[in-house]
Each structure stands twice: as structure tokens, then as C-alpha cells.
Design a protein around this nucleic acid. Structure first.
Lengths: 198, 198
DNA sequence: TTCGTCATGTAATGGGTTACATGATTAC
DNA sequence: GTAATCATGTAACCCATTACATGACGAA
């Protein structure tokens, strides 16, 4: 991940479902967000520490199952202290909701992605608001692409032109995808009783 | 921009074309890379300072118009303001080429974009190598998406699923775009004499 | 026994973001 | 005369990256 302060939301969101230790958290994060999101230990653990300091999560030392000490036995002075399980607190729940609902940061692609991954915790109106905000942002960028190209097209070389055209097409495709999501949202809102997905 | 150390390449690349001052550099950067790339002063000027310290660019003080100017008429050809113009040095040229050619960092989307914007300075073989490296990377990610979905599909909700599907489609589209670029590269390589773009 | 995975962290480094601060010039 | 744009930077704050360091456990 690239931008600062982005891990908080997904960490809280995953811990909301169930308590986990750091290592598993990372695996779930990758599974949920796909291979482009790689979380490094050096960002995950400090995030957990910050959240713990803020009272949003608490550390639980899980006693080890190890039941058998047959072989190794002996002198290990202490046994506990293997996994550290993190659990969401009430404050953490509140923080999660706050981060999820804030519309300010919803426009940026990565922030939007993270919010979308936890959309099920939002009510339909908020979902629609976030979707429409993102859509407007993309539309604005599309317009900027066009003025940009109008003003500079002759001065940019063919590679850069190809770059911008591809980028515009991708933006257009994003918009269409958002439109689908908006349509789906409206149809469950006004139409059939909530199917609550699969 | 989000990642560290990414401004160096485009700054050197633009200064290679012609000397400029910081403010103009930023405008050119936006024009070239499109509206998703926003460069802040707080990252641009420190980058220039670093490059200057490394001897890659040199600062030229463009002298301001002798202090007092007649209101309008006199200095029509003057256009003087106190600007600091940056010029690429020989070392800077070397650094530019080095940064542009290194294949290690070429896989990441942003690095790849930046290199592509200066592809005209590379020979066709290096261009092809970079394109194919990027393609292989995307292909690999696509495979990871698939295994990921195979293993977790039942456990992810419909929003996250939509997210991943869209992300996969975008990756696929990126690959097709790269393929086009590769085809174009090969056709100028083996076929007609270099058309050197529009 | 050794290798791969599980598991938890810390330290140094670097640089991006945001806000701040200033002043000149142009257009209305 | 005043607002917008041109123009150049600095500073504090935050945090991601990378590399480092350690150790348990299961299987081959």
C-alpha cells in the first residue's frame, strides 16, 4: 500500500468480523483486496500498535494449544506468548463506522476501494452517496483529460498519447462499473425485498 | 503522487527537453501525465533540491528586470520575473538514462507509466524488454486473482466480488493495451522505416 | 536435520502531504 | 484596487518501505 493512514479501516473491518492475530490479518487482507494490495509487516504491526494505543483494539495473549511438550520439554522458561490476538473494542467499532462513512476521502481510488469492501455495513443511502461522489470525481477527471488533450495534443508524443487514451478508457470503464453498482443499489432499495447477497 | 522517489525521472526527462523553472515543470508534468498525477510543491521543490545536490541539475538565476520597470510599455520583450531556471547537467543525463533503463522497477504501474512517457529516448529492444516485463507482471497478477477467487469466492460478499471482478477486467484490459504497444513496436522494428510518430 | 511456513516485532531511512509564508505580475 | 495567477520555497508531521532479528512448529 502506498498512501498513509489507509490500513486502519480494513484492519478494523476485519476485526469486526472476528478477532485475529496479525499474521492472519494480512492473509485475509490480501484475499479480500486482491494481489495488488500487499501489506508489509512494517506497516501492519505499527498500525495495530497505533490502534491499540488509541483504544480501538485490544491485545489478547492466546494461550498456546501446544498441549504436548513431550519432546522439547524442559527448560523453556516460559511457554505463553505465541500468538497475539487482536480484538475490536467498542471504541474501535465507533472509529470504524466513522472512517467508513466519511465522504471526504471517498473519491480517491484506494480509499474508495477500501470502503467498498465494507459496504455491507452501510445503509443504502450512504452507499449511494459514496458511489455518486466517486462517480462525479471520475467524471470530473474525464473532463480534465479532454481539456488537457485539447490544449496539448500536438505537443505530446505517441507513447504519451497512448498512455492518456488508455487512462481515459480505464476511467470510462470505472464509471460504467460504478453505474452498475448504483443501479443495483437502487433496485434493491426500491424493488424487491433485500436479497442480502449470496 | 504517492510513492517515494518517483519524481526524479520525469523531472529529469522534462529538463532534458529544455530548461525550465519549477512552476512550469509542474504544469508540464500534469499535461503529460494527466489529471490523476498531481504534484505538490512540497514534493517538487525538495526533489529539485536533491537533484541539484547530486549534481544532476543546476540552478540558473534568471535575472529580474532591473527593479523598477515602467508600467507597461517599455519592457514588452522582457517578461522578466525572478525565476529559478533548472538545467540538466551531463550527470543528470546519465542519471536519467540509468533510471529509465533499469528494468527492476518497471513492473509497478506508476513506474511503468513514467517510463513509458519517455519511451522515445529508448531503443526498440529496451522498449520491448520493458513492455514484456510489465506484461508478465500483469499476467502473474491475473493468475493470482484466479487462485484467490478459487480459494475464497464463497467467503467474500458481493461488493468485494464485484471489486475483484472489475479489477481483473481492468488488468486484462491493461494487458491488451500492452499487447498493442508490443505489436506496434515490432512492426516499426521489422517493417517500415521508423515513422517517428506524429 | 533442514526447509518452509507461521509468527511477531523493531530500527533506520526517506520522502510525501499539508499547511504555512511571501511576494510579483496580470487582467478586470 | 483587487483578485487571480505566477512563482518559490520551508517545516512539521506522519507513515510506508526495507532490512533486520528472532524463534516455534510441522513435515520431508
Amino acid at each position: 500500500m502506498k498512501q498513509p493512514g489507509m490500513l486502519e479501516l480494513p484492519v478494523l473491518g476485519l476485526l469486526k468480523e472476528r478477532s485475529m492475530h496479525g499474521y492472519e490479518l494480512r492473509k485475509q487482507l490480501s484475499a479480500m483486496l486482491g494481489p495488488f494490495w500487499q501489506v508489509s509487516w512494517g506497516s501492519l504491526y505499527p498500525t495495530l500498535r497505533r490502534l491499540a494505543k488509541a483504544g480501538a483494539v485490544e491485545k489478547l495473549a492466546e494461550e498456546k494449544p501446544s498441549k504436548r511438550r513431550a519432546k522439547t520439554a524442559s527448560g523453556s522458561l516460559n511457554s505463553g506468548r505465541r500468538k497475539t490476538v487482536y480484538r475490536l473494542t467498542a471504541q474501535g467499532e465507533a472509529l470504524f463506522t466513522e472512517l467508513l462513512e466519511e465522504t471526504a476521502a471517498a473519491v480517491d481510488a484506494d480509499h474508495f476501494t477500501l470502503k467498498l469492501a465494507f459496504f455491507r455495513y452501510l445503509n443504502p443511502e450512504t452507499r449511494l452517496a459514496l458511489l455518486e461522489r466517486r462517480r462525479a470525481y471520475l467524471q470530473e477527471k474525464l473532463g480534465q483529460f479532454k481539456t488537457n488533450l485539447r490544449d496539448y495534443r500536438e505537443r505530446i508524443d505517441s507513447y504519451t498519447l497512448s498512455l492518456q487514451n488508455h487512462s481515459m478508457a480505464a476511467t470510462q470503464s470505472d464509471i460504467e462499473w460504478i453505474d452498475e453498482l448504483i443501479r443495483a443499489e437502487r433496485s434493491i432499495e426500491g424493488g424487491a425485498p433485500n436479497p442480502s447477497n449470496a
